[in-house]
């Protein structure tokens, strides 16, 4: 199969075949990161710009490492150091970058749809590294890769996503991806964190974590952002953690071999208890990070014509 896309903007528009191709390609790249010399010359001479308008450690580093392991030249631009502070528009920034002929632009932006604006304007490939509360496709791909490795499949699995769904791009991308791949997705969170008409995405919705995780194969916990408290979507971290924290007690409701995931960074003791987060028998959180590099290598490779 040939990979025909110019951009990776979301999981919504990807087909099952495309997702499988990306995951298989990523699996073949996993080994490179275990070598003594972690570098192959596949993308030598290619330029990748990481354009980050929002703070990020994990995702930006992961993209940078992915590019470097494939021998591409990677450049990081963050909003604080760029012309954004001088008032340049996203479009002008993009056109200027385009004029320097990079091959791929990776963008993270707090405004939903910003990567789409860029993709319409510039001829380079755009990878969405997270836009607002819309999508975070590379996270969903690495999550699917992790699930597949631990469970041998995705189809037929029951997956619970718990927390602030409303503000989560990780949740949206995973709902699309996991549903496409045949998993059953259930959600749980306080009513104030469940966006309107979310059921229409084909998911079951609960208010209690216990109802959602009963008998599931995978639990995905989302990060609670403290600043959301100002929007009155939850009264206090104390109350939230008492009712929505994944702990030794409620995890017993899930399948015995359940795996626990988290896109990070985790709030220990808020949405996940430290002993669960650190328990190697169920927590695959660091494994997700590991897969992230492989998935991003695969996308850079496929978008720069590697599939030909």
């Amino acid at each position: 199969m040939k990979f025909e896309r110019k951009d990776i903007l979301g999981i919504k528009e990807l087909s099952v075949d495309e997702i499988n191709l990306i995951l298989e390609t990523a699996e073949s790249f996993l080994e490179i990161s275990t070598r003594k010399i972690k570098k192959v010359p596949i993308l030598r001479g290619k330029t990748i710009i990481n354009l980050f308008y929002e703070a990020s450690t994990r995702t930006r580093t992961s993209f940078e490492i992915a590019g470097k392991r494939l021998s591409a030249d990677t450049i990081n631009i963050s909003a604080s150091t760029s012309s954004v502070v001088k008032g340049e528009t996203l479009i002008d920034t993009a056109r200027n970058l385009e004029a320097m002929n990079p091959d791929v632009i990776v963008i993270r932006h707090s405004a939903s749809g910003a990567p789409h604006l860029l993709a319409r304007l510039v001829k380079q490939s755009i990878i969405n590294a997270g836009d607002g509360a819309h999508e975070h496709p590379t996270q969903a791909l690495l999550d699917m890769m992790t699930i597949k490795e631990h469970k041998g499949k995705i189809a037929g699995l029951n997956v619970a996503i718990i927390g602030d769904i409303e503000h989560s791009r990780v949740a949206r991308s995973n709902i699309y991806g996991l549903s496409k791949m045949g998993a059953n997705v259930v959600l749980a969170g306080p009513a104030t964190m469940l966006p309107r008409d979310i059921e229409q995405m084909g998911v079951k919705v609960y208010n209690k974590i216990e109802d959602a995780i009963e008998g599931v194969d995978v639990i995905m916990m989302l990060r609670i952002q403290l600043e959301r408290q100002k929007q009155c979507i939850f009264p206090s971290l104390r109350e939230y953690s008492q009712h929505y924290c994944l702990n030794r007690n409620n995890i017993k409701l899930a399948k015995k071999d359940v795996i626990v995931m988290h896109p990070g960074p985790i709030n220990r003791g808020v949405e996940i208890s430290p002993d669960i987060a650190d328990d190697p028998s169920c927590s695959v959180i660091l494994d997700q990070v590991n897969k992230g590099v492989a998935v991003r290598m695969a996308l850079l490779y496929l978008l720069t014509g590697g599939g030909e």
Partner: peptide, 10 residues
């Protein structure tokens, strides 16, 4: 506010 704002993350 509705299904489309939910899927668009706006």
């Amino acid at each position: 506010e509705g299904y489309y704002s939910t899927i668009l993350g706006l």
